[in-house]
């Protein structure tokens, strides 16, 4: 499954980058994120509770960043496991100045779902992924733009 899109935030690139590299801020923006902690190998351990309407699941996973080019881009590898299924994906996030003085975050990646989610959820899997991403960026931009953040 391909996941790609772009999101603009009315904040300078350096600021956005800072937030994107901060586990606390990411954890805060990821709805249902119960844990996001750095692991000794440089990756992050995460526990995520995803809820879309009545559908709810807890996922334990690992997020790894690579090819970090501040404040331009990084590659992200995600692996998650939950009741009866798994999610894994790899993608790139890149930041560029948009034409209104803000920052455009472009993301593009491939995600794979397996087990229960794959075999019973194909109808909604794409819409769900889209919603999780949208919610993330909404919460993320709110955080970046919140007065306390400045």
């Amino acid at each position: 499954m391909k996941i790609e899109g772009a999101y603009s935030i009315a904040a300078p690139r350096e600021t956005v980058w800072q937030y994107l590299m901060s586990p606390e801020s990411l954890a805060h923006a990821l709805l249902g994120c119960e844990k996001l902690e750095p692991a000794p190998d440089g990756s992050f351990q995460a526990v995520l509770k995803i809820g879309i309407g009545a559908v709810k699941g807890t996922y334990q996973g690992r997020i790894e960043l690579a090819d970090v080019v501040p404040p331009v881009s990084y590659r992200m590898k995600v692996e998650g496991k939950g009741a009866g299924g798994f999610v894994s994906g790899e993608g790139t996030l890149s930041l560029s100045a948009d034409n209104q003085g803000g920052t455009k975050i472009q993301y593009s990646g491939e995600a794979q779902v397996g087990g229960l989610i794959a075999s019973v959820g194909q109808r909604l899997v794409q819409a769900t992924a889209r919603q999780v991403v949208n919610q993330f960026f909404q919460a993320f931009s709110k955080q970046v733009l919140s007065p306390s953040a400045k």
Partner: peptide
């Protein structure tokens, strides 16, 4: 190799 039609909904 994931079966996508795992229920009679699909």
């Amino acid at each position: 190799g994931q079966l996508l039609t795992g229920t009679l909904m699909d």
